[in-house]
Design a protein around this nucleic acid. Structure first.
Lengths: 208, 208
DNA sequence: GTCTATATCAAGATAGAC
DNA sequence: GTCTATCTTGATATAGAC
């Protein structure tokens, strides 16, 4: 079954990329792991970059879903927490992309553009979400602070897994949870006192 | 002159690594650029990793200097601004390390430990600096907020150049200045109102 | 200290049989 | 659709002459 082999290659490549880092996994390694021949792999994919591009496609669809905000209704901290979960889980699942982000994007113009689009969407979402909180009176922030904080959220989200890995954190669950907490604590000082104290309590409890 | 060639190799390697990314620069490329033979290069360095390690040595010394805080006297926002300059300039000068940080550290245990040490020092510095501001009454933050913010500062500083490069920023000066602003804006919401407004004005002016 | 020449090896990729 | 065999290329590294 062609379909099946193609999917198995993608699944295995993703797993190996995530575990060992994309630069350290060759097409032969992937074929070996699957116990198929290199030739077979190249029947299904033009080259290694083709595999990466298909995985990026999957990633992009999932991230697009995670970034859709329930925009009609007013957002509260609970919603943000939930959305961060979706985003961080997606990043974790495709963390090989983030591990060598600059290098991977530098080799492929299309992916560069598509990743920039995702970043743009995320930034817009973060900004408008915060503006909603400001208007609701839950948050107090200047326009410049909203913009800067939105950017900082993106940087933290984009590189948190790398930071965790450099620090030596290994556990998936812990890495995701601490990432969410870092972003929430970025928002904390902007909140009204009641919410600010509440959030501090929540995050402490969440990390145990 | 042995000394001179050795230094020229390091200088050229650093320049090429920064421009093209360490994975894309081979020992032969470096030798070519210098118009020396590959054999000559290998007379001066055991291997490519040896070159990277020597560059890391330079980087580490410079970063250690930048992280020394003028700890005896009380620190104000001006001091922080200045120190951020030193840190970001150092990061810019050795940005190849940060571009492929996870991959480079994953190949070399020694560098991993040394980089972790630097992170630790930076985190301690950021924490104690903020605690000083809190005690001086300029900043208002819970202990958890201080810790989380210190960590966020590190993540932003560590990966800002990557983020700028993925966004497509090219100019050195702009990348450094926007990085400093991002970190300052991270502190802004924690400040007393007077300083908070003042900082917002300063950062806007700084970005023109 | 530097060069030329070359060895080694691995990664990416293709041809052609089955 | 899959395999075996093989090619090409380029990267790291060394030997030995000068």
């Amino acid at each position: 079954m062609a379909r099946q082999t193609r999917q198995r290659i993608l699944d295995t490549a993703l797993r190996m990329f995530n575990q060992q880092g994309e630069p350290n996994v060759t097409t032969n390694h992937i074929a070996d792991e699957l116990e198929i021949s290199p030739g077979n792999l190249y029947y299904h994919f033009r080259n290694k970059d083709d595999i990466i591009e298909q995985l990026f496609q999957r990633y992009e669809e999932r991230m697009d879903t995670a970034l859709v905000s329930p925009d009609s209704r007013l957002r509260d901290l609970e919603d943000i927490w939930l959305q961060l979960h979706l985003v961080f889980e997606c990043i974790w699942e495709y963390r090989f992309l983030y591990r060598d982000l600059v290098d991977i994007l530098s080799r492929n113009r299309r992916l560069r553009l598509r990743f920039a689009r995702i970043l743009k969407r995320a930034a817009d979402g973060a900004s408008s979400g915060m503006k909603g909180l400001v208007q609701a009176g839950v948050m107090r922030a200047s326009a410049a602070e909203v913009e800067a904080t939105a950017t900082n959220i993106l940087v933290i989200a984009t590189f948190w897994m790398n930071y965790a890995s450099v620090r030596g954190d290994k556990d998936e669950d812990e890495a995701i949870r601490s990432g969410i907490v870092q972003v929430m604590m970025l928002l904390s000082p902007l909140l009204r006192d009641a919410e600010r104290v509440h959030l501090n309590t929540l995050t402490q409890a969440y990390l145990r």
